[in-house]
Amino acid sequence: MAESLISIRAVTKTFKLGDQEVRALRGVDMEIPKGAYVSIMGPSGSGKSTLFNMIGGLDLPTSGDVVVEGCRLRDLDSDQLAWFRCHKIGFIFQSFNLVQTMTAQENVAIARTFAGCSYAESMHDAAEVLKRVGLDHRLKHLPSQVSGGQQQRIAIARALVNKPLIILADEPTGNLDLKTGQDIIDLLNEMKQAYGVTIVTATHDMKMVSASDLLARIRDGAIDELLGKDQMNVTIGTIDGESVA
């Protein structure tokens, strides 16, 4: 396999819920090559989000290692992890998670500010990226004043503004209707080409799966099936009589 960007090595995660131990991950191994579009599928509670948090440096595995660009996340202290999240990872969430009191432009700019840019620079870069996701006419709008699809576009712009290595998208189309969801998938693909980022998504959405290079099915905290693009046999229905595949 080509040089991998993310190596997940025998990762386990155990949570304590009261006196009960819940094993969210029971030994996951996975190599994600640079520039790939990876979909992780699985029922809720299968450990998808836990795996995501590990890759994003939000949580540490109980045992095993996550290695990104040859760097073991376990070895980083909290300030290094903050830097890692800021420069290397772009997060996209199911519920957008925009700061409600900030305009679209400010929501994107704050990520740039955390990367050490001045206010003026940040606002300038934010406007550029928002333009690329087709929102140049919504810069001064608050999240509550735009549609769900547009909010997710703002979130995508925010994830991209620091030119990260990896986009981690946790069910990015989960709160959107089919058509808008498809637009978001197309946009992610377009941005993957434009910025050369590696995209890792968790999804139930077959449309997203068909766009990906690698599909991991996860069940009960372990990888059930790992399929390359040529091994996937995805059939997709149509929306409004148009094929969406």
Binding site: A82, C86, F93, N97, L98, V99, I110, A111, A115, R158
Partner: peptide, 16 residues
Amino acid sequence: VREIGTLKCLGAQDRF
């Protein structure tokens, strides 16, 4: 709470 969590994902430190 969510806003703070989001900001931390974007690289904010506790200090901020």
